[in-house]
Amino acid sequence: MTTSIAATIRERVARIETMPSIPAIFIPLLELLNLPVERVKLDEVVKLVSYDNTIAAQCLRVASSPLFGLAKSPESIKGAVISLGLRKVETILLTCCLSNAFPAKSWALDPTLFWRHSLGCAMVCRKFSDKLGGGDGDKAYMAGLLHDIGLLVSCIAFPKELTAAFALANQEQTPIEEAERTTMGFTHCETGRALAEKWHLANDMLQVIAHHHAPEQSEGAQPLVALVHLSDLLCRMRGMGYGYYERRRVDWVADPAWAILQKEHRNLDGIDLVRFTFEMDEAIEEVFGLVSTIFGGTAARN
Protein backbone atom coordinates (compact mmCIF):
# COMPACT_ATOMS: atom_id res chain seq x y z
CA MET A 1 0.00 0.00 0.00
CA THR A 2 1.32 3.43 -0.91
CA THR A 3 1.69 6.12 1.72
CA SER A 4 -0.91 8.27 0.01
CA ILE A 5 -3.58 5.56 0.29
CA ALA A 6 -2.67 5.03 3.93
CA ALA A 7 -3.03 8.75 4.50
CA THR A 8 -6.44 8.81 2.78
CA ILE A 9 -7.68 5.98 4.92
CA ARG A 10 -6.45 7.60 8.13
CA GLU A 11 -7.94 10.90 7.14
CA ARG A 12 -11.37 9.46 6.30
CA VAL A 13 -11.45 7.34 9.42
CA ALA A 14 -10.57 10.38 11.54
CA ARG A 15 -12.85 12.82 9.78
CA ILE A 16 -16.14 11.11 9.10
CA GLU A 17 -18.69 12.13 11.70
CA THR A 18 -20.67 8.93 11.50
CA MET A 19 -17.52 7.02 12.24
CA PRO A 20 -18.35 4.61 15.00
CA SER A 21 -17.30 5.82 18.36
CA ILE A 22 -16.20 3.13 20.69
CA PRO A 23 -19.01 2.23 23.09
CA ALA A 24 -18.07 3.34 26.58
CA ILE A 25 -18.26 -0.11 28.09
CA PHE A 26 -16.47 -1.90 25.25
CA ILE A 27 -12.85 -1.57 26.31
CA PRO A 28 -13.50 -2.28 30.00
CA LEU A 29 -15.47 -5.36 28.98
CA LEU A 30 -12.66 -6.47 26.73
CA GLU A 31 -10.26 -6.11 29.64
CA LEU A 32 -12.52 -8.17 31.89
CA LEU A 33 -12.61 -10.85 29.23
CA ASN A 34 -8.84 -10.99 29.26
CA LEU A 35 -8.80 -11.81 32.97
CA PRO A 36 -9.01 -15.38 34.23
CA VAL A 37 -12.65 -16.04 34.99
CA GLU A 38 -12.07 -16.52 38.74
CA ARG A 39 -10.70 -12.99 39.03
CA VAL A 40 -13.72 -11.32 37.45
CA LYS A 41 -16.17 -9.92 39.92
CA LEU A 42 -19.80 -10.31 38.96
CA ASP A 43 -20.64 -6.91 40.43
CA GLU A 44 -18.14 -5.19 38.14
CA VAL A 45 -19.81 -6.63 35.06
CA VAL A 46 -23.26 -5.72 36.33
CA LYS A 47 -22.11 -2.19 37.13
CA LEU A 48 -20.52 -1.72 33.71
CA VAL A 49 -23.60 -2.88 31.89
CA SER A 50 -25.90 -0.68 33.93
CA TYR A 51 -24.32 2.32 32.18
CA ASP A 52 -25.90 1.27 28.93
CA ASN A 53 -29.57 0.33 29.00
CA THR A 54 -29.82 -0.54 25.32
CA ILE A 55 -27.06 -3.08 25.58
CA ALA A 56 -28.39 -4.52 28.84
CA ALA A 57 -31.84 -5.00 27.28
CA GLN A 58 -30.40 -6.58 24.15
CA CYS A 59 -28.28 -8.93 26.21
CA LEU A 60 -31.33 -10.08 28.18
CA ARG A 61 -33.26 -10.66 24.98
CA VAL A 62 -30.49 -12.87 23.65
CA ALA A 63 -30.12 -14.69 26.96
CA SER A 64 -33.88 -15.45 26.94
CA SER A 65 -33.87 -16.85 23.40
CA PRO A 66 -34.56 -20.57 22.93
CA LEU A 67 -30.94 -20.87 21.88
CA PHE A 68 -29.76 -20.99 25.46
CA GLY A 69 -32.60 -23.22 26.58
CA LEU A 70 -33.26 -21.52 29.89
CA ALA A 71 -36.51 -22.59 31.54
CA LYS A 72 -37.09 -19.08 32.84
CA SER A 73 -36.02 -15.83 31.16
CA PRO A 74 -33.48 -13.95 33.26
CA GLU A 75 -34.76 -10.59 34.49
CA SER A 76 -31.39 -9.02 35.20
CA ILE A 77 -27.83 -9.21 33.96
CA LYS A 78 -26.96 -10.79 37.29
CA GLY A 79 -29.62 -13.43 36.73
CA ALA A 80 -28.30 -14.07 33.23
CA VAL A 81 -24.75 -14.54 34.52
CA ILE A 82 -25.97 -16.98 37.16
CA SER A 83 -27.91 -19.10 34.67
CA LEU A 84 -25.59 -18.85 31.66
CA GLY A 85 -22.18 -18.33 33.14
CA LEU A 86 -20.00 -15.26 33.03
CA ARG A 87 -18.12 -15.97 29.81
CA LYS A 88 -21.26 -16.51 27.78
CA VAL A 89 -22.80 -13.29 29.03
CA GLU A 90 -19.59 -11.38 28.35
CA THR A 91 -19.50 -12.53 24.76
CA ILE A 92 -23.17 -11.67 24.30
CA LEU A 93 -22.45 -8.22 25.72
CA LEU A 94 -19.48 -7.62 23.46
CA THR A 95 -21.44 -8.68 20.42
CA CYS A 96 -24.29 -6.34 21.35
CA CYS A 97 -21.80 -3.53 21.97
CA LEU A 98 -20.23 -3.89 18.55
CA SER A 99 -23.54 -4.12 16.74
CA ASN A 100 -24.61 -0.86 18.36
CA ALA A 101 -21.39 0.85 17.37
CA PHE A 102 -22.25 0.23 13.73
CA PRO A 103 -25.91 0.97 13.11
CA ALA A 104 -26.90 -0.93 10.00
CA LYS A 105 -28.14 1.57 7.49
CA SER A 106 -27.44 1.23 3.78
CA TRP A 107 -24.50 -1.08 4.25
CA ALA A 108 -22.64 -2.38 1.24
CA LEU A 109 -23.19 -5.85 2.66
CA ASP A 110 -26.11 -7.50 4.40
CA PRO A 111 -25.56 -6.96 8.16
CA THR A 112 -27.05 -10.38 8.88
CA LEU A 113 -24.41 -12.01 6.70
CA PHE A 114 -21.68 -9.94 8.28
CA TRP A 115 -22.63 -10.91 11.82
CA ARG A 116 -23.16 -14.55 10.92
CA HIS A 117 -19.66 -14.60 9.50
CA SER A 118 -18.11 -12.75 12.44
CA LEU A 119 -19.91 -14.75 15.13
CA GLY A 120 -19.36 -17.97 13.23
CA CYS A 121 -15.67 -17.23 12.94
CA ALA A 122 -15.54 -16.34 16.65
CA MET A 123 -17.08 -19.68 17.53
CA VAL A 124 -14.78 -21.64 15.20
CA CYS A 125 -11.75 -19.79 16.60
CA ARG A 126 -12.72 -20.79 20.12
CA LYS A 127 -13.33 -24.43 19.15
CA PHE A 128 -10.07 -24.57 17.22
CA SER A 129 -8.16 -23.00 20.09
CA ASP A 130 -9.72 -25.51 22.51
CA LYS A 131 -8.71 -28.39 20.23
CA LEU A 132 -5.12 -27.17 20.15
CA GLY A 133 -5.07 -26.78 23.89
CA GLY A 134 -2.88 -24.45 25.90
CA GLY A 135 -4.33 -21.43 24.14
CA ASP A 136 -6.78 -18.82 25.27
CA GLY A 137 -10.19 -19.70 23.87
CA ASP A 138 -11.78 -16.42 24.93
CA LYS A 139 -9.12 -14.35 23.25
CA ALA A 140 -9.50 -16.46 20.12
CA TYR A 141 -13.26 -15.85 20.25
CA MET A 142 -12.71 -12.10 20.52
CA ALA A 143 -10.22 -12.17 17.64
CA GLY A 144 -12.72 -14.02 15.46
CA LEU A 145 -15.46 -11.57 16.34
CA LEU A 146 -13.32 -8.54 15.48
CA HIS A 147 -11.27 -9.78 12.52
CA ASP A 148 -13.43 -8.27 9.77
CA ILE A 149 -14.30 -5.05 11.56
CA GLY A 150 -12.56 -3.20 8.74
CA LEU A 151 -15.48 -4.13 6.49
CA LEU A 152 -17.74 -2.08 8.75
CA VAL A 153 -15.29 0.81 8.64
CA SER A 154 -15.22 0.63 4.84
CA CYS A 155 -19.04 0.50 4.79
CA ILE A 156 -19.06 3.90 6.44
CA ALA A 157 -15.86 5.51 5.19
CA PHE A 158 -15.85 4.15 1.62
CA PRO A 159 -19.45 3.12 0.90
CA LYS A 160 -19.41 3.50 -2.89
CA GLU A 161 -16.04 1.83 -3.30
CA LEU A 162 -16.97 -1.13 -1.09
CA THR A 163 -20.29 -1.57 -2.91
CA ALA A 164 -18.35 -1.78 -6.17
CA ALA A 165 -15.93 -4.28 -4.64
CA PHE A 166 -18.79 -6.54 -3.48
CA ALA A 167 -20.45 -6.29 -6.89
CA LEU A 168 -17.22 -7.44 -8.54
CA ALA A 169 -16.71 -10.23 -6.00
CA ASN A 170 -20.28 -11.47 -6.57
CA GLN A 171 -19.94 -11.33 -10.30
CA GLU A 172 -16.54 -13.00 -10.54
CA GLN A 173 -17.12 -15.27 -7.52
CA THR A 174 -13.76 -14.19 -6.13
CA PRO A 175 -12.76 -13.54 -2.51
CA ILE A 176 -13.81 -10.06 -1.33
CA GLU A 177 -10.28 -9.06 -0.37
CA GLU A 178 -9.13 -9.64 -3.96
CA ALA A 179 -12.04 -7.62 -5.34
CA GLU A 180 -11.27 -4.79 -2.90
CA ARG A 181 -7.68 -4.72 -4.07
CA THR A 182 -8.81 -4.55 -7.70
CA THR A 183 -11.41 -1.84 -7.26
CA MET A 184 -10.07 0.17 -4.31
CA GLY A 185 -6.35 -0.55 -4.13
CA PHE A 186 -6.65 -1.49 -0.46
CA THR A 187 -8.72 -3.84 1.68
CA HIS A 188 -10.71 -3.96 4.91
CA CYS A 189 -7.48 -4.98 6.60
CA GLU A 190 -6.13 -1.45 6.20
CA THR A 191 -9.32 0.35 7.20
CA GLY A 192 -9.72 -2.02 10.15
CA ARG A 193 -6.21 -1.25 11.23
CA ALA A 194 -6.97 2.48 11.23
CA LEU A 195 -9.94 1.88 13.52
CA ALA A 196 -7.98 -0.43 15.80
CA GLU A 197 -5.39 2.33 16.17
CA LYS A 198 -8.08 4.92 16.85
CA TRP A 199 -9.63 2.65 19.47
CA HIS A 200 -6.22 1.79 20.95
CA LEU A 201 -6.95 -1.91 20.76
CA ALA A 202 -4.29 -4.29 22.08
CA ASN A 203 -1.57 -5.22 19.60
CA ASP A 204 -2.68 -8.83 19.12
CA MET A 205 -6.19 -7.73 18.08
CA LEU A 206 -4.68 -5.11 15.79
CA GLN A 207 -2.48 -7.75 14.15
CA VAL A 208 -5.51 -10.00 13.61
CA ILE A 209 -7.53 -7.18 12.07
CA ALA A 210 -4.66 -6.02 9.84
CA HIS A 211 -3.18 -9.37 8.76
CA HIS A 212 -5.80 -12.12 8.88
CA HIS A 213 -5.45 -12.63 5.12
CA ALA A 214 -1.65 -12.93 5.32
CA PRO A 215 -0.65 -14.07 8.82
CA GLU A 216 2.99 -14.39 7.83
CA GLN A 217 3.14 -10.59 7.57
CA SER A 218 1.91 -9.91 11.08
CA GLU A 219 4.25 -8.42 13.65
CA GLY A 220 3.65 -10.39 16.79
CA ALA A 221 0.75 -12.68 17.73
CA GLN A 222 1.38 -14.77 14.62
CA PRO A 223 -0.21 -17.98 15.95
CA LEU A 224 -3.42 -16.10 16.84
CA VAL A 225 -3.51 -14.40 13.44
CA ALA A 226 -2.91 -17.77 11.75
CA LEU A 227 -5.70 -19.38 13.76
CA VAL A 228 -8.13 -16.63 12.74
CA HIS A 229 -7.00 -16.91 9.10
CA LEU A 230 -7.74 -20.64 8.95
CA SER A 231 -11.02 -20.30 10.84
CA ASP A 232 -12.11 -17.51 8.49
CA LEU A 233 -11.42 -19.75 5.48
CA LEU A 234 -13.32 -22.63 7.02
CA CYS A 235 -16.36 -20.41 7.71
CA ARG A 236 -16.36 -19.24 4.13
CA MET A 237 -16.20 -22.80 2.85
CA ARG A 238 -18.97 -24.03 5.16
CA GLY A 239 -21.91 -21.72 4.60
CA MET A 240 -20.86 -18.72 6.69
CA GLY A 241 -19.25 -16.52 4.06
CA TYR A 242 -20.53 -13.37 2.41
CA GLY A 243 -23.58 -14.77 0.66
CA TYR A 244 -22.07 -15.72 -2.67
CA TYR A 245 -20.19 -18.71 -4.12
CA GLU A 246 -16.44 -18.27 -3.85
CA ARG A 247 -14.86 -20.14 -6.74
CA ARG A 248 -11.84 -21.40 -4.89
CA ARG A 249 -10.17 -24.32 -3.22
CA VAL A 250 -8.74 -24.13 0.28
CA ASP A 251 -5.77 -26.30 1.20
CA TRP A 252 -5.35 -25.72 4.93
CA VAL A 253 -2.24 -27.82 5.38
CA ALA A 254 -0.38 -26.11 2.50
CA ASP A 255 -1.31 -22.64 3.82
CA PRO A 256 1.57 -20.67 5.40
CA ALA A 257 -0.73 -20.20 8.43
CA TRP A 258 -0.60 -23.95 9.03
CA ALA A 259 3.20 -23.88 9.32
CA ILE A 260 2.97 -20.96 11.76
CA LEU A 261 0.53 -22.86 13.98
CA GLN A 262 2.56 -26.05 13.70
CA LYS A 263 5.55 -24.36 15.32
CA GLU A 264 3.40 -23.37 18.26
CA HIS A 265 1.24 -26.48 18.58
CA ARG A 266 2.84 -29.88 18.18
CA ASN A 267 -0.53 -31.63 18.24
CA LEU A 268 -1.86 -29.76 15.19
CA ASP A 269 -1.31 -32.69 12.81
CA GLY A 270 -3.24 -34.97 15.15
CA ILE A 271 -6.46 -33.02 14.69
CA ASP A 272 -9.12 -34.72 12.58
CA LEU A 273 -9.92 -31.79 10.30
CA VAL A 274 -12.85 -33.49 8.64
CA ARG A 275 -14.52 -34.24 11.93
CA PHE A 276 -13.74 -30.70 13.05
CA THR A 277 -15.51 -29.46 9.92
CA PHE A 278 -18.55 -31.62 10.64
CA GLU A 279 -18.67 -30.42 14.23
CA MET A 280 -18.50 -26.87 13.00
CA ASP A 281 -21.46 -27.49 10.71
CA GLU A 282 -23.40 -28.35 13.83
CA ALA A 283 -22.63 -24.94 15.34
CA ILE A 284 -24.03 -23.09 12.31
CA GLU A 285 -27.65 -23.31 13.43
CA GLU A 286 -26.61 -21.89 16.78
CA VAL A 287 -24.88 -18.95 15.10
CA PHE A 288 -27.82 -18.26 12.80
CA GLY A 289 -30.16 -18.38 15.77
CA LEU A 290 -28.01 -15.99 17.77
CA VAL A 291 -27.80 -13.50 14.92
CA SER A 292 -31.52 -13.52 14.23
CA THR A 293 -32.17 -13.02 17.94
CA ILE A 294 -29.90 -9.99 18.02
CA PHE A 295 -30.80 -8.47 14.67
CA GLY A 296 -33.88 -10.25 13.35
CA GLY A 297 -34.25 -10.79 9.62
CA THR A 298 -33.10 -13.54 7.33
CA ALA A 299 -30.36 -13.84 4.77
CA ALA A 300 -29.28 -16.41 2.26
CA ARG A 301 -26.75 -19.00 3.33
CA ASN A 302 -23.41 -19.22 1.68
Binding site: L233, M237, E246, R249, V250, D251, D272, L273, T277, F278
Partner: peptide, 24 residues
Protein backbone atom coordinates in the same frame (compact mmCIF):
# COMPACT_ATOMS: atom_id res chain seq x y z
CA UNK B 1 -20.42 -36.01 2.26
CA UNK B 2 -20.25 -37.41 5.80
CA UNK B 3 -17.17 -39.59 5.39
CA UNK B 4 -13.59 -39.02 6.51
CA UNK B 5 -10.16 -40.38 5.54
CA UNK B 6 -8.58 -39.42 8.85
CA UNK B 7 -5.40 -41.36 9.61
CA UNK B 8 -5.87 -43.62 6.58
CA UNK B 9 -3.63 -41.82 4.13
CA UNK B 10 -1.33 -38.86 4.61
CA UNK B 11 -0.32 -38.41 0.98
CA UNK B 12 -3.63 -36.89 -0.10
CA UNK B 13 -4.22 -33.21 0.67
CA UNK B 14 -7.57 -32.40 2.23
CA UNK B 15 -9.14 -29.66 0.10
CA UNK B 16 -12.15 -27.57 1.05
CA UNK B 17 -14.54 -26.28 -1.59
CA UNK B 18 -17.70 -24.36 -0.72
CA UNK B 19 -19.87 -26.88 1.11
CA UNK B 20 -17.78 -29.93 0.34
CA UNK B 21 -14.38 -31.54 0.72
CA UNK B 22 -12.19 -33.66 -1.52
CA UNK B 23 -8.78 -35.29 -1.41
CA UNK B 24 -6.14 -34.13 -3.84
Amino acid sequence: TSESLFKLNDKFHLIHFPGTIAYW
